[in-house]
Design a protein around this nucleic acid. Structure first.
Length: 491
RNA sequence: GUCCCCGUCGUCCAGAGGCCCAGGACGUGGCCCUUUCAAGGCUAAAACACGGGUUCGAAUCCCGUCGGGGACGCCA
């Protein structure tokens, strides 16, 4: 089995396309097939090398590495369409020879006028066939005289074309609704339908898995396979990914590209797992599974027929799951850019600071949706209590007692030390439970809410012990915080 | 306008004629846990688009209606 993902490099990877890539990848991985990446860059206007690179990056970030294709090589290259022009020229020649293709000299303006007229007359807009019967000799003469022309496919009249879509079953089109498609543009560039067919055939693709928007291209392509005398591959059309309003997912729905989700702090395994769940189910009431297991269970036949709405809440749920599974060192590495952006990391991290992050982050990651929220949780460490202080009962007493307790002892670098001090403050103030801990929280973190004190107090204290040039923003210890609050309140 | 695809809880899926007065997940409500916000655990509400057939029996098959989407490009 050989499958391919064939993006056109005209922008970042859209999650809908990422899902198509994923389904191809899942099938190949699960069936011991070959997953090929081809770049369809025949649109000279919009294709850029930067976009191509961005797409490759996004694919790799998701872990969807290809076995064959651009930057990976293989026996069926080149894998960039703009590098295959001689191949297309050769095949154009073949079609012109056997009469399945012909030159069309109609100008773009003429065609546009015809199209408008047809639409106005409530007719299906399709090529009228004006140049169909120009004798080959005359066409050749006009060509050599320099007259611009495209090459079209001669679509047989009054026939039905049926293919068996692996996800939907049989689909039939009548050739009368299909106008002769352009194969080669007047600038010599191959048109989409022409290039895909030649590439899929020559690259020995066995299963073409793509978006539903290609269903109506399929009969044209099958006719082309016939014109070349080739056997078409199996086709599978995936339904589209929609926004909450059931319109195709687009910018106005918010994030749509893989890059944006990456920047928002989603883990690749969460995106991959969630995307697999749109239009497919691993069965057995399991949903959160590693990619290898998804691949093992994946069957094209079980893919849903209807469009799916992208639900970021569910993505976030998957992300929470993978955030908890994330190893400390990886978590620290992933979090760094976000902490830096927030000014919590200001320089090169020392080994000690790195270790501090690895120790602190996993605990905080247990209760967040996305990476940047790590910085939110960390605010408790980097922020100092500041005026005006909440006028809360118990606050001054607790501040005094806490400052006093912390004044002499060592820093509260673990939960037990913190609890011991809290117990002493409790004895001195007679406050307990919420009435004790809330003031402590306000005094130490300057906020009404945040991570558990058991977690955050040792984090503050350990950070405060780090050398000033460790790469972290300055952190004041609990002692300094308590003293400052006690002093401020007394004044 | 024409052709094609699709139609189960708000959302994503399970369901391939009796196992379904429809199951799971996200989200939502409630409860529990708790020194806060979260997270977590438990629990509840919530759907077979509509109308005709076929059949002893239909969410499952057929037809129609309605609704949604796609295509009709010298874009891919």
């Amino acid at each position: 089995m050989r499958v391919r993902f064939a993006p056109s490099p005209t922008g970042h990877l859209h999650v809908g396309n990422a899902r198509t890539a994923l389904f191809n990848w899942l099938l190949a991985r699960g069936q011991n097939g070959t997953y090929i990446l081809r770049i369809e860059d025949t649109d000279a206007e919009r294709s850029t090398r930067q976009s191509e690179q961005a797409i490759l990056d996004d694919l790799r970030w998701m872990g969807l590495q290809w076995d064959e294709g651009v930057e990976a090589g293989g026996d069926h290259g080149p894998y960039r369409q703009t590098e295959r022009f001689p191949i297309y020229a050769d095949h154009t020649h073949r079609l012109l020879q056997n009469g399945k293709g012909y030159y069309c000299f109609c100008s773009a303006e003429t065609l546009e006028a015809q199209r408008k007229a047809q639409l106005a007359a409530s007719l299906p807009p399709k090529y009228a066939g004006t140049c169909r019967n120009i004798p080959a000799a005359e066409a050749a003469r006009r060509r050599s005289a320099g007259e611009p022309a495209v090459v079209r496919l001669r679509v047989p009249e009054n026939r039905e074309v049926t293919f068996h879509d692996v996800v939907r079953g049989p689909v039939t089109f009548h050739t009368d609704v299909i106008g002769d498609p352009v194969l080669v543009r007047s600038d010599g560039f191959p048109a989409y339908n022409f290039a895909v067919v030649i590439d899929d055939a020559l690259m020995a693709i066995t299963h073409v898995i793509r978006g539903e928007d290609h269903i109506s291209n399929t009969p044209r392509q099958i006719l082309l396979y016939e014109a070349f005398g080739w056997t078409p591959p199996a086709f599978a059309h995936l339904s589209l990914v929609m926004g909450p309003d059931h319109a195709p997912l687009s910018k106005r729905h918010g994030a749509t590209s893989v890059r944006e989700f990456r920047d928002k702090g989603y883990l690749p395994e969460a995106l991959v797992n969630y995307l697999a769940l749109i239009g497919w189910s691993p069965g057995q009431n399991d949903e959160l599974l590693p990619a290898a297991e998804l691949a093992r269970r994946f069957r094209l036949e079980n893919v849903a027929h209807s469009a799916g709405v992208f639900d970021e809440d569910k993505l976030a749920w998957a992300n929470r799951h993978y955030l908890r599974l994330c190893a400390p060192d990886r978590l620290a590495a992933l979090a760094q850019p976000f902490l830096r952006e927030r000014g919590q990391i200001v320089g090169d991290l020392s080994a000690g600071a790195g270790a501090w992050l690895e120790a602190v982050l996993p605990g905080l990651a247990a209760s967040i949706d996305r990476l940047p929220q790590l910085a939110d949780r960390l605010e408790a460490v980097f922020r100092r209590p500041a005026a005006p202080l909440e006028k809360e009962p118990g606050l001054p007493e607790v501040a005094v007692a806490l400052a006093d307790e912390l004044g002499s002892g060592s820093r509260l670098v673990n939960k037990d030390l913190f609890r011991a001090v809290a117990a002493r403050v409790k004895d001195r103030t007679g406050l307990k439970g919420k009435n004790l801990f809330h003031p402590i929280r306000v005094i130490l973190t300057g906020a009404n809410e945040g991570p558990e004190l058991d977690l955050i107090v040792p984090a503050i204290e350990r950070a405060a012990e780090l050398p000033r040039d460790c790469g972290l923003a300055e952190v004041f210890g609990c002692r300094e915080r308590a003293q400052w609050v006690a002093r401020t309140l007394a004044a």
